[in-house]
């Protein structure tokens, strides 16, 4: 049995993976709303909105779970990160708030002038869907870069800027955006029966795949100076090589199956690729939560808390798994789509 703090850290990584696969794709949908073009622009927007509407509130709870687990089980790390990254986290929150509100206002506006207002809300929704993942990635990149040392009292030493205002975190921001957009495009290929529309998203998926590869390469290069620790971990860590192979391989399969219009295969592959990216980050950074001073074991809360939280997670999962299954069965099955 691994130490409880490792299990909780694993649960945090799992929540981040699920957030990427679900909430991340919802953000990506907003990016394609912003970039909707051509004769089917309206249909594209509609497909995106239909895909997101019933599930986004549930999907974004994964982010809340990750944050709550972090502050409950690794309070020092939470305090350090939220102090040093105050600015990008605040920017991300403004994006989260505006985006959710705009999406809902657009859907529920009625009466005279509603369609002009809907266009304005669309803009807000699409722009914040693009900016927010970049800020989320900047925060993740800054954590990966480390550079948040602690003083003797366990408080983070920071000037509030240099931990995140650097090329590497922004490269990770771009990678996050590209990844979310790629996920959304591939999912949308599957969810649409209309061949022409699926083709639109297929092309977008291919472009996004190229962008992901490019951003990953740039981030890798910048990591040499910006995040030496994680780069070393990515080269040397035990799971690291396996994660590379999985991620790269899955990326290739995604592109190949998009080219051959095997959308269901592409969907599995792109999900595997996203899992690989998050797992690779986590493995590369292990055992640090926030380099150079905070590790998984040094920041862990008392064991009684960790054990109680693990039991709560287990009990919650018993309720959640069937509930999510029902939600997705109702809204994402083919039978459901036929009602459109």
């Amino acid at each position: 049995m691994p130490a409880p703090e490792l299990l909780v850290a694993g649960a945090i990584v799992a929540s981040l993976i699920l957030y990427t696969l679900t909430g991340g794709a919802d953000f990506g949908g907003g990016v394609w709303d912003l970039l909707a073009r051509g004769p089917r622009a309206k249909a594209q927007r509609r497909a995106i909105a239909d895909a997101i509407a019933p599930v986004w509130e549930a999907n974004h709870v994964w982010l809340i779970v990750a944050v709550v687990l972090l502050f409950v089980c690794f309070p020092t790390a939470f305090a350090a990160v939220s102090t040093a990254l105050h600015v990008p986290i605040t920017a991300m929150l403004v994006g989260v708030i505006l985006r959710g509100a705009a999406f809902t206002f657009r859907a529920y506006d009625t009466g005279p002038g509603a369609s002009e207002r809907a266009r304005a809300w669309s803009r807000v929704f699409a722009i914040t869907s693009t900016v927010t993942p970049v800020m989320l990635g900047v925060c993740a990149g800054a954590v990966a870069a480390g550079g948040m040392p602690m003083d003797a009292q366990g408080r983070v030493v920071t000037d509030f800027v240099s931990a995140w205002w650097a090329p590497f975190p922004f490269a990770v921001g771009a990678l996050t955006l590209a990844l979310f957009a790629q996920l959304a495009a591939v999912y949308l290929c599957v969810e649409r029966e209309d061949e022409a529309l699926a083709g639109d998203f297929r092309r977008r998926g291919l472009v996004a795949s190229a962008a992901v590869a490019l951003c990953a390469w740039v981030a890798w290069v910048l990591a040499g100076e910006g995040a030496p620790l994680i780069r070393a971990g990515l080269v040397a860590g035990p799971g690291a090589v396996a994660a590379h192979v999985l991620t790269g391989g899955a990326g290739l399969v995604t592109v190949a199956s998009l080219l051959r219009r095997r959308y269901r295969v592409a969907r599995v592959a792109v999900m595997a690729q996203a899992v690989g990216v998050v797992v690779g980050w986590a493995a590369g950074q292990h055992p640090y939560l926030v380099a150079p001073d905070i590790t998984v074991s040094s920041a862990a809360a008392p064991e009684s808390v960790l054990v109680a939280v693990l039991w709560a997670l287990a009990a919650g999962a018993v309720l959640l798994v069937p509930a999510f299954w029902v939600l997705y069965a109702v809204f994402k099955s083919r039978g459901g789509a036929a009602l459109h």
Partner: peptide, 15 residues
């Protein structure tokens, strides 16, 4: 860590 229990359970209630 001390008030983590209600917050963690709340997460499930939100879900």
């Amino acid at each position: 860590p001390i008030i983590g229990m209600p917050f963690s359970l709340e997460g499930f209630a939100f879900f």
